[in-house]
């Protein structure tokens, strides 16, 4: 039985476009902040995990690649990855790296560090990315943040693709820091009232 597709079932196109745009002009990375604020705002204002359930383009992309293109082994994830320790631990690690990136942006903003035109993959590998930046902004921190934020987005996509291949298509959803945060907000909002 096939379900009627809605407009939001095509948001995977937006996710892929976002990743592609980052190869041409790094400043597009700023758009990715929407993927941070929209889910949080939805759950803060009582929408629960509607973002994950309906609008997450990345989840749809993994679903498409894993199920339709059969790029997933479709095997269960190791149990430890399902534990709360792993989920909250990954969120904590992710946030530390995120604030590290914000701090690097601040250093450029304050003038104590020069702009580094690299995309850091998996927090380790520095990929030269200078072709995607040609503008000569007066405020170079804007570009620094773009490089940093795109690194976050690319890293999480790569991790998601790896677990998609090894386990279930949307394995990323289990340890997605945004998902952990939105569910955490819902727990604070509703669980106490039950």
């Amino acid at each position: 039985m096939k379900k009627n597709k809605k407009w939001y079932d095509y948001l995977w196109i937006v996710s892929i476009t976002y990743l592609v745009l980052g190869f041409f002009n790094i400043l597009f990375a700023w758009i990715g902040l929407l993927c941070f604020f929209i889910p949080l705002l939805i759950s803060i204002f009582g929408g629960g995990k509607t973002y994950c359930n309906k609008y997450c383009g990345r989840g749809q992309m993994f679903d498409l690649l894993g199920n339709k293109f059969k790029l997933s082994r479709n095997k269960p994830m190791p149990r430890f990855m399902l534990s709360k320790w792993f989920r909250y631990g990954f969120l904590a690690f992710f946030m530390i790296m995120f604030f590290n990136m914000i701090f690097a942006t601040y250093l450029v903003f304050s003038g104590s560090r020069d702009l580094t035109q690299v995309v850091t993959l998996l927090w380790t590998f520095k990929l030269p990315w200078q072709w995607a930046y040609s503008a000569n902004l007066n405020s170079e921190w804007i570009a620094q943040f773009a490089f940093g934020f795109y690194s976050v987005m690319l890293t999480s996509t790569v991790l998601g693709l790896v677990t998609m291949g090894l386990f279930k298509p949307r394995s990323w959803c289990v340890y997605c820091p945004m998902g952990t945060m939105t569910q955490g907000i819902c727990k604070i909002k509703y669980r106490e009232k039950e």
């Binding site: 759950s43 629960g48 989920r87 949307r170 959803c173 998902g179 952990t180 569910q183 907000i185």
Partner: peptide
């Protein structure tokens, strides 16, 4: 984790995500 993957594939629409929990 309330991701909603199950809800998407349910042919009978028997699944709801309860308050994002």
């Amino acid at each position: 984790v309330a991701c909603g993957c199950c809800k998407k594939v349910c042919p009978k629409d028997a699944i709801t995500i309860e308050k994002g929990l």
